[in-house]
Amino acid sequence: MPTAISMRNVVKTFGPTRALDGLDLEVATGEVHGYLGPNGSGKSVTIRTLLGLLRHDSGEARLLGGDPWRDAVALHRRLAYVPGDVSLWPNLSGGEIIDYFGRLRGDLDRPKRDELIERFELDPRKKAGTYSKGNRQKVALVLALASNAELLLLDEPTAGLDPLMETVFQDCISAVAAEGRTVMLSSHILAEVEKLCDRVTIIRNGRAVQSGSLDDMRTTTRTAITVSTDRPVDGLEVLEGVHSVRTEGAALRFEVDSHALGRVLNHLTAFGIRSLVSQPPTLEELFLREYGDDLAASEAAGTS
């Protein structure tokens, strides 16, 4: 079976809101697919439609060869889901909740569960009501990762995790990918998706605006650099791929196309780097740069 998920021209409205507005999405079996978009772009609605929790108005959606709405119960045996905002029963312990879901799914793998609880440093005896947001997220991750599901649907799973736990999460996803299982990872953090995903779909206002391999995308990505050097830098503006250079106090700020990064760093070394901070553009910035015109046009068209 070549595709795990395919959506064609899917529309989902809530009253006047068009949460999905002709969405096209293709996730191949065995890949880790990044699903990127700013807040409110329709990522969660997409995933909840795929889970058969929401019924789309029109278009075609297929999941693991079935219909996500009609075949929901049968399909759910083969997938695991981590919601974006995890809410648990406050009077049950974390361990009880993990095992409850394991038994509902019918594939509770105890050694794997225990190992994951240890790796995520989760105290399974604590009542869920006393868990922080991060710990609730860990419960959902453990119960999804402990399953043998062939497809993992993860909705912003690392919101609330500290950086150490994020590393553990990334290792786990790499292991899942190595087993040939499929992962759909929704996120609004470009860096996380860059580390894990083979292919990426970017969604905005309920429509896929770009889809492809990360390498393709990288060429369109710019990194923001803040650097201070021993001697004043010159000749930076004229380098190919460098944009918007400006000085801020003792520091110099500019943006650089990713493919030109190596060359620019070489250039800077000559002036004695004292400190350097690089920050990939936020998705929002990327959108504004890449799609700002389209958006303005489509919004103008929508209002007229």
Partner: peptide, 23 residues
């Protein structure tokens, strides 16, 4: 102090009915 709960779930807590009854 809220007593900690069990680290593993009871095998009986295996259906929505069992959970609803428990809650």
């Amino acid at each position: 102090k809220q007593r900690p709960g069990p680290a593993v779930g009871s095998p009986r807590l295996a259906s929505p009915l069992a959970l609803a009854a428990r809650l």
